[in-house]
Structures are given as C-alpha cells and as structure tokens.
C-alpha cells in the first residue's frame, strides 16, 4: 500500500516530498487505526482543512466498502463450488504463514531493546497460553500494560539514568 501511496502523492500529485511522507508515515504508525486512514485524514486536513480530511478519508473507505459489500453478498454462493473450497484451504495456510512471518519480521525490529524483548517474550507466551486454555483476558489489557511499561522504562527510568550521568 505504501508504494502506491508514494507513487500517487509524491510522484504524481506532488502534494508531499519524500521527507514529509516519511514523517507522516511515522506519525501514522504511532497512531491508532489503519495507516491509510491516518494519512488521508492528515493530508486532507493539511490541504483543505477539516472538510478536506473528511473527503480524503471517505475516498479511501468507499472503494473498500463497495467491494466488501459485494463480497459479503456473493461469497456464500461461490463457496458452493468444490474448487473454491480447495482454494480457500490453500488460502488459510497462506494467511497463517503471512501472519507468523510478519511477526518474525517485526520481532527483528526489537533487536537491541532488552525491555522490548522481555515484554515481547512474556506477552507472546501468556497470550498463547490464555488462548489455548480459553482464559478470557483481552489483548487490550496487554496493550495498556505495554504502554505503561513503556512509559516507566523508556521515559522515566532513562531520564533518571541520564541525570545520574551528568
């Protein structure tokens, strides 16, 4: 998706330069929600105020909405065909492959961050065990705890360390 965004916004429309896109992507990645929505809202506002942000966001949503609406209506009919069922057996395997692979690719980004690695290992083990044993503990709590740990270890403690070095 980002390649497409780059082609359209930087190369064709010239609404942004490379550096701005990089900065906006960083902001979009640190805010909740789909990145394309973050970018559309931000850029829409920058170009044409709040009305611009509404239209840019709608622009991203409408094609997806229309296509998924059609998929929802047609899928059960398609599923009656044997070949389609077999295709989806393959797709299921492909999807779990992609999810596991994405996790490993992202985990590499934690390299050198000891707190992050410890949090990562503990949460991965706990969440997997909870799912396996059907313990009801929402992933949202892990996210909130992660934020708290982040504030304590990356913001508060690092600051103290910085002061003692002086």
């Amino acid at each position: 998706m980002l390649t497409l965004i780059h082609d359209e916004l930087v190369t064709k429309k010239n609404w942004l330069n490379d550096e701005e896109l990089l900065e906006m992507t960083a902001i979009a990645e640190s805010t909740p929600g789909p990145i394309a929505i973050n970018l559309a809202t931000y850029l829409g506002y920058k170009k044409r105020g709040w009305l611009g942000s509404i239209f840019a966001t709608l622009g991203v949503v409408i094609p997806t909405f229309a296509i998924m609406f059609a998929v929802a209506l047609l899928l059960s009919n398609l599923m009656q065909f044997e070949a389609v069922q077999y295709a989806f057996m393959g797709i299921k395997c492909g999807v779990v492959f992609l999810i596991v692979r994405t996790a490993f690719v992202l985990a590499k980004g934690l390299k050198g961050d000891i707190v992050g690695i410890i949090v990562f290992i503990i949460v991965a083990i706990l969440m997997t065990a909870f799912t396996l044993f059907a313990v009801n503990f929402s992933a949202i709590y892990f996210i909130l705890i992660g934020g708290l740990i982040g504030i304590i270890f990356y913001a508060l403690l690092r600051n103290k360390k910085g002061e003692s070095n002086k």
Partner: peptide, 23 residues
Amino acid sequence: QGALKGIRAVAVALILSAGITLL
C-alpha cells in the same frame, strides 16, 4: 514515545501469538 515503544513490543507479541494459535 515511551508508551508507543512498549505498545509496539506487545503488538508484535500479540501478532505472533495469534499466528501460532491459528497455525
């Protein structure tokens, strides 16, 4: 930024856990 860094580590763990259980 600190909170986001902590959340990112959790998010990767949650993706891995979802991946493993689905797998």
